[in-house]
Nucleic acid binder design. Structure first.
Length: 569
RNA sequence: CGGGGCAUAGCGCAGCUUGGUAGCGCAUCUGCUUUGGGAGCAGAGGGUCGCAGGUUCAAAUCCUGCUGCCCCGACCA
């Protein structure tokens, strides 16, 4: 490709709206342009990257025996009503009506459509297992689209759905997809981690997320320093302390905290560490009006864990101020676990605090030097909080570290969730009708592009991982317009490289060298060749790698073989 | 959904307080010079100042409503 026919749309100034580095660079390098909130046009240069990502995914899915198909983006409401998700899904589901006033949605995912397809097409166990996939646009009406294509409303996703006669088969394909995903992200040249996850709205049991590690990631991942354990922070477990509970050393007293309501204020007022304070949160109970959850002051409630407790009403919700007052006799800010008429559940860590401070259920009062068992009964304990750095790993090996990541893949074992609701059955060996087991496996294709930049950039711009760079080689002639000899040589070289199978971008603009260098670095082409008259005289061409590791001169003779060595390295 | 902010040339912004001829940088076009790290000079084109009302002799500027977009929050005892 020549820049005269493949115009670069680079911009020097950083767009005002862009917050994170990948978004800024994607706009500056001319990969995407915004159409409306969360909607982006992929420009020719950006699309080349997107296609390369797609192709790697496609190759690995095909290699794993999955079958590609393509389902519509617009889906009839009936299918969603059948799976009951029409009612479950909130405003994130974009609902539309056609001219006949029939209801549809723009698909945020395709479980319903594929399950409908499978129940029509699959009738025998002999056709199983089978794994269908597509690379298709999705639309999710995000509350707050941001960070460019990282959290866009419309995005490209690879989604696969497998069908099985039994759980063992589902498990087998799940394991295979786990391996396939690892292979895909490895081939894409990304630093990633597979982590245990919550399955969220898609439903089902076992699920594993794949995260590209990046500072700006929206998810926190906890992993063990000494084992393979890795989990989304939402799911990372804390374990009961093995040590004995510390013993009381002081006598309980009621202290004045006239205006101190938050843990921070109370701790400061009493000149104590927040770790010595316990906070009590009141949430709606499943049976009782409310349940008190007690946490150490420096810890934060994990709502997903709390919602799973049988005593707690789902979905988790906090009771309002009037109810707090009615139940405890005190407004929020002074609530404590002593003498409450509702169930009290304490986090494991909250039980390990002696001489603690807690609300006294009276305005302006807290208890100090309270102790479990001595001053109030030992409550039921549970894992209620988010893990923090340094917590012991739940598998008992090492301690937890926390890093941030961008979720780019998620694999689930759905089981019968959709197949049962939609009656997707096949006949088994005994001629008996059996509900199929399902797995589902997603990759955010557009998000991968942003994540790759997030992980690979410098002051000059993008430094693409080689497998997904829009071009492999930038060929830059110096003052070609002034020298016919140089023009001939460069054009010859270009043809030679293209014929050898390289993806080459020849900058044949009549631009100054500085402009060409800056543009090629911004768009992140991994290999740069510079040819000048002087170089021609010497029979040498300058080679520099975008990552800055190599900067040298190569003899022009036999250049394709030399490059093949460098590039395929 | 709650709070804050912004909307003026393709992009980034000033002008608005105190109403009166719409401006700067980048980009674009023309010419000349320049050419190994985002060139210089000279010139040119480009705007219903987000939309709709209102006040006024006069509105980008003041008032009201609407729309779009951005940011923060949605953890709290």
């Amino acid at each position: 490709m020549r820049t005269s026919q493949f115009p670069l749309s680079t911009i020097k100034e950083t767009p005002a709206d862009a917050e994170i580095i990948s978004h800024k660079l994607m706009l500056r390098a001319g990969l995407i342009r915004r159409l409306a909130a969360g909607l982006y046009t992929w420009m020719p240069l950006g699309l080349r990257v997107l296609r390369k990502v797609e192709n790697i995914i496609r190759e690995e899915m095909d290699r794993a025996g999955a079958l590609e198909l393509l389902m519509p983006t617009v889906q009839p409401a009936e299918l969603w009503q059948e799976s009951t998700r029409w009612a479950q899904y909130g405003p994130e589901l974009l609902r539309i009506k056609d001219r006949h006033d029939r209801e549809y949605c723009y698909g945020p995912t395709h479980e319903e459509v594929i399950t409908d397809y499978a129940r029509r097409e699959l009738s025998s166990y002999k056709q199983l297992p089978v794994n269908f996939y597509q690379i298709q646009l999705k639309f999710r009406d995000e509350v707050r689209p941001r960070f460019g294509v990282m959290r866009a409303r419309e995005f490209l996703m690879k989604d696969a759905y497998s069908f099985h006669i039994d759980q063992a088969s589902m498990q087998q394909t799940f394991n295979q997809m786990h391996a396939t995903y690892s292979q895909i992200f490895t081939r894409l040249g990304l630093k990633f981690r597979a982590v245990a996850a919550d399955s969220g709205a898609i439903g089902g049991n076992t699920s594993v997320e794949f995260h590209v590690l990046a500072e700006s990631g929206e998810d926190a991942i906890a992993f063990s320093t000494a084992s393979d354990y890795a989990a989304n922070l939402e799911l990372a477990a804390t374990i009961p302390a093995s040590d004995k509970r510390p013993t009381a050393t002081a006598k309980t007293k009621l202290v004045d905290t006239p205006t101190q309501k938050t843990i921070e204020e109370v701790a400061k007022h009493l000149k104590l560490d927040a770790k010595r304070c316990l906070k009590t949160l009141l949430v709606k109970g499943a049976e009782q009006e409310a349940v008190a959850l007690v946490l150490r002051g420096d810890h934060s409630l994990n709502e997903i864990k709390a919602a799973k407790l049988p005593e707690v009403a789902q979905p988790l919700s906090f009771i309002d101020d009037d109810q707090i007052k009615a139940l405890t006799g005190s407004p929020a800010g002074f609530i404590g676990p002593k003498d409450l008429a509702i169930p009290v559940i304490a986090d494991y860590a909250a039980l390990q605090v002696a001489d603690f401070v807690c609300g006294a259920n009276q305005v302006g009062k807290h208890w100090q030097d309270m102790n479990w068992e001595r001053d109030l009964p030992l409550p039921k304990s549970a894992d209620l909080r988010n893990v923090v750095e340094g917590d012991p790993s739940p598998d008992g090996k090492g301690t937890l570290q926390i890093v941030r990541g961008v979720e780019v893949g998620h694999i689930f074992q759905l089981g019968e969730k959709y197949s049962k609701a939609m009656n997707a059955t096949v006949l088994d060996e005994d001629g008996k009708s059996v509900v199929m087991q399902m797995g589902c496996y997603g990759i955010g294709v557009t998000r991968i592009v942003a994540a790759a930049i997030e992980q690979n950039n410098d002051a000059q711009g993008i430094v693409w991982p080689k497998p997904i760079a829009p071009f492999q080689i930038a060929l830059l002639p110096i003052n070609m317009h002034k020298s016919q000899r140089l023009a001939d040589a460069v054009n010859g070289l270009y043809t030679q490289l293209v014929d050898a199978g390289f993806d080459v971008l020849l900058d044949d603009r009549q631009a100054r060298p500085g402009v060409m260098f800056a543009d090629m670095e911004l768009i992140g082409i991994p290999h740069r060749l510079v040819l000048s008259e002087k170089g021609l005289d010497e029979g040498m061409i300058e080679y520099k790698s975008r990552d800055g590791n190599v900067d040298t001169k190569l003899p022009l003779d036999n250049i394709t073989d030399q490059l093949r060595g460098i590039i395929l390295d």
